[in-house]
Structure formats: structure tokens, C-alpha cells
Design a protein around this nucleic acid. Structure first.
Length: 422
RNA sequence: GCGUAGGUGGCAGAGCGGUCAAUUGCAAUAGACUGUAAAUCUAUCGCCCCAUGGGCUACGGGGGUUCAAAUCCCUCCCUACGCACCA
């Protein structure tokens, strides 16, 4: 399957403006150095590069989206791109997760996830046509390696080099355990690029270490100068990562409304970086907004009537991002919904609808529908005045029974329409 | 293998026989406020009940001592550190 070099002629575009944009926008670093890669991109040579994704969950998130978008830029220029599914790694389980007992994925789950990934990635990438993006699985080669092969690979890296890595370094400092097999992950990831014999790799800057291990391998084993392009991570000014752990990371399979809401909850400092990383807006336009935002921040005297309200920029950001994943119409709708729900205290469009008999206890309904975790939680919410039928006073009794069809609101974000049955 | 220090709620980390469903911080949820689901302030934050009260389940696993254990004892498992061993 490998070895068959694409024989079709694909036109490689060497437009300087495009290449520069490719190399700067949302890019943290380029190894060995920027000019090296620029030179190759301008040479007309068709490069092969890849982005590796570990199938740890069923969906990709916005962070992946950013990198896939970058990959697309390479594809658009005519280069051969590979979406590598790290199924081998996934099947073994990720060591970075100290909460240990992560379930090991079965072959079926991995393939299932991968299918979703391709679907979600096809928002950006073209998997068909003249220059299709390829999908590969690293179990294809990693699964076949013998202990001897592994030893040979490990002899290329020293323990000190491994320990230099932040992730390990921190754990040593914190007195947390490091298991030997965790050392193997960089090796496995590093070997991917050898197996695929690529020209380069892109990834988040948190993957820099692993990608550089691969760079070393390729140099030693194939005498090839692999380029590594690391993308900026989406962080706010304080450097806080928009990761899954932060709870505000957007999954690519989320519906438009949810996505929109999540983005609106981001801190202001994230607006400009997100425009750069996640949208197609021109850099000049983004810089213009940045300028306006900064001016706005300094003339806070205009309390509240500030024409450069960050909220409006964030609204635009949310619209732009949702547009990419769900299309223009849905994005617009989500925006209107958001306005209605949160600004004016209304009700969103698509809400859960259920049927129950008259005089059923509200608490039981909400528990059954999963809107509250327990009856105790329900009781607490009632005490806090968080439960009300839309347009009515909050209810006060824990054993409140429904008497008519109504839309119920629990807190600001949970809604349910309960119809009286029969 | 020996020794030492540890394993507590989503995480971090107190408590070291009763007053502990467990201080505190973070996270989370709600209310107020706000341009926002930001910030801030306030409250809540195991589960269940005919509820200013009561019950159940929890402090690595199992067993024991006691009227009473997260707290004491035994045992097993796990982690860190030191020593020993080491192709």
C-alpha cells in the first residue's frame, strides 16, 4: 500500500502570498527553521505531510479543527496530506491521563471513531478528487514491530532526553509516577513518520516533543530532513488552555446552538486568537478588530454604550465558527436563538419535549429526563429559585405537581417542555 | 527484597477515636449584577424520605478492637523516596 507513489500529476501552487499565510497564521514554530520550509514550498516540489490524531474519544474538538484547517491549506496548495489515526496508541491507552483506568479501545471502537473523524474532518479536507487526503492507521506498522525493532528504536533516544520533556519533568517534580511504557509513546509517534516516509508533520505545540523525536528518527534512519510545523494552541491572554479539561472546548459534533453558546462563554482575551486560528477572516480584518477592541477597552468611560463592545466581536466570532461547521443558515439561527435565550431571557427553539400525566411530580420528571442529577439537587434548585415555568414565578415546593402543559426552565440553560398527556 | 513516608469527596489537600457527610482551595451548579454562560458578590455542592427532623452509603480492599473508627490493630493491594540487587 505504501511505496506506490502517486503517479498522477498534481499541480503545486507556489504563490508567495499564500505560502506566507500558510507559514505564519496560527503557527507557533517551524522546525528546523521557517526559511527551510518556505524554500521547499516555493520550489514546486510536492510534499507529503501528515497530522496525527489519537482516537481517544468519539469526536474531534475545535483544537483538532484548527490543525485540520492548517492541513487543508497544504492540500489547497497541492501537497499530499495524510490524516493519521493513532489507533495503535488508542488501543493501548493514553498515559498522559493520570486518572489511569482509561478504557482501552477495541478495534471496532477505533474504526467507529475514525469514521466520525473523517466525517468531521471533511468540513475542511477533501477526501476525493485529484488530490485526496489519505487516511492511515498507525497500527499498520506499529502493530507489526517486534521487540527487537522496538529496542533498536529506543537506542536512539536517551533517558535524559525523555526526562527533559515537560510532562515528565513536572511529574518527577510532583513526585508522581512515570511508567516505563509512557516512554514508548514518543517513540511510537516518532516512528510514524519513518513508516510513512513523509516530508513533514504538523501538530499542536503540545506535541512538539513527539514530533521532534520523529524528526530525529527520520534523519538517522532515512537521512531525511523532516519539517515540523507546530500550531498555536487556543489560549487566552493568561495562557489558559482551551482544552477538554477546561470544559469549554467545543466538540465538532455539537449542534450549532451548543457550539455557539460555548464560544460565547469564552473569555474576552480569546476573541482575537480564535479569529486567527479558527476562522477564514482575513488577517487585516482581524487586526482591525483587535485595534478596535483595545481602543474600546481604554475608553471605559463610555460605560455600557461602548460601540466596540467585546460581546459583539465574540458574537461575530461564534457566528463565523459555527458557519464553518454547520453552514450559514444554522449559524444565523443559532445566533438569533442565543440572543433570544440569554439576552432577553427567552426560550431557545429546539428544546426537549416530553409527555407526562397530570399531577406528576416535577422533580421526578426532571430526574427521569436527566435534567437534574438527583432529587436532592432538584430540592436545592427549587430553594434557590432556579425552577420556573417560563413567564411565571419560581416554584417553592419540592413536591410541586404539574397541572398544565408548560415550558420549564431550570437555571439559565436547562429547558424542557412538558405536555400533559391524555 | 529491606526501610521510611503516604493512599480521604471531580481534583488538590486538612483531619488522626466521638461534636465528620468530613476544614480549606480549585472546579461545578444556582441567585444577584453585567455586553456575555466573563469578572465580582452570595449561596449550594453524597443519596433518599410524609423533612427546622430522620435513614442509608462513603475516607485504597478485606478483617478485627471499641458503646463509638477516616482516625487504633492485622492483612492485602498501590505510590513516592532511600538502601540493597542488577543484563
Amino acid at each position: 500500500m505504501f511505496g506506490i507513489k502517486n503517479t498522477k500529476k498534481v499541480n503545486v501552487i507556489c504563490d508567495e502570498v499564500k505560502v506566507t499565510e500558510l507559514l505564519t497564521r496560527g503557527v507557533e514554530n517551524v522546525y528546523p527553521k521557517l526559511d527551510f520550509l518556505k524554500g521547499r514550498l516555493m520550489s514546486g516540489e510536492r510534499l507529503t505531510l501528515y497530522l496525527g490524531i489519537d482516537p481517544t474519544g468519539p469526536t474531534l474538538h475545535l483544537g483538532h479543527g484548527i490543525l485540520i484547517k492548517k492541513l487543508k491549506e497544504f492540500q489547497d496548495l497541492g501537497h499530499e496530506i495524510i490524516l493519521l489515526i493513532g489507533d495503535f496508541t488508542g488501543m493501548i491507552g493514553d498515559p498522559t491521563d493520570k486518572s489511569a483506568t482509561r478504557k482501552k479501545l477495541t478495534r471496532e471502537q477505533v474504526l467507529e471513531n475514525a469514521k466520525e473523524y473523517v466525517k468531521q474532518a471533511s468540513v475542511f479536507l477533501n477526501f476525493k478528487g485529484e488530490n485526496p487526503a489519505l487516511v492511515k492507521y498507525n497500527s499498520e506498522w506499529l502493530g507489526k514491530m517486534s521487540f527487537g525493532d522496538v529496542l533498536e528504536l529506543s537506542s536512539l533516544v536517551t533517558v535524559d532526553q525523555m526526562l527533559k520533556r515537560d510532562m515528565f519533568d513536572n511529574r518527577v517534580k510532583e513526585g508522581k509516577p512515570i511508567y516505563l511504557h509512557e516512554f514508548m509513546y514518543p517513540l511510537m509517534q516518532g516512528y510514524d513518520c519513518v513508516a510513512m516516509n513523509v516530508d513533514g508533520e504538523i501538530g499542536g505545540n503540545d506535541q512538539t516533543f513527539n514530533m521532534l523525536v520523529g524528526r530525529d528518527f527520520l534523519k538517522i534512519l532515512k537521512n531525511k530532513e523532516k519539517f515540523v510545523l507546530t500550531g498555536k494552541l487556543l489560549t487566552d491572554s493568561a495562557g489558559k488552555k482551551m482544552g477538554k479539561t477546561e470544559g469549554n472546548m467545543v466538540s465538532l459534533d455539537q449542534d450549532a446552538g451548543e457550539m455557539f453558546g460555548k464560544i460565547m462563554s469564552w473569555a474576552d482575551g480569546l476573541i482575537i486568537p480564535a479569529f486567527e486560528l479558527c476562522t477564514y477572516l482575513k488577517m487585516e480584518e482581524i487586526q482591525e478588530m483587535d485595534k478596535k477592541l483595545k481602543e474600546g477597552a481604554s475608553d471605559g468611560i463610555n460605560e455600557g454604550i461602548n460601540p466596540r463592545n467585546p460581546r459583539d466581536f465574540k458574537f461575530k466570532l461564534a457566528t463565523e465558527i459555527v458557519k464553518i461547521y454547520h453552514g450559514e443558515a444554522k449559524a444565523k439561527e443559532a445566533g438569533e436563538d442565543f440572543e433570544k435565550t440569554f439576552k432577553k431571557g427567552g426560550v431557545p427553539e429546539d428544546i426537549m419535549e416530553v409527555n407526562f400525566a397530570k399531577d406528576t411530580r416535577l422533580g421526578e420528571i426532571l430526574l427521569a429526563e436527566g435534567l437534574v442529577k438527583s432529587k436532592s439537587e432538584f430540592a436545592r434548585l427549587v430553594d434557590e429559585g432556579a425552577v420556573s415555568a417560563v413567564g411565571k414565578e419560581a416554584i417553592k415546593t419540592h413536591d410541586f405537581k404539574i397541572s398544565e402543559s408548560a415550558v420549564w426552565k431550570i437555571g439559565k440553560r436547562r429547558f424542557i417542555k412538558i405536555n400533559i398527556k391524555g
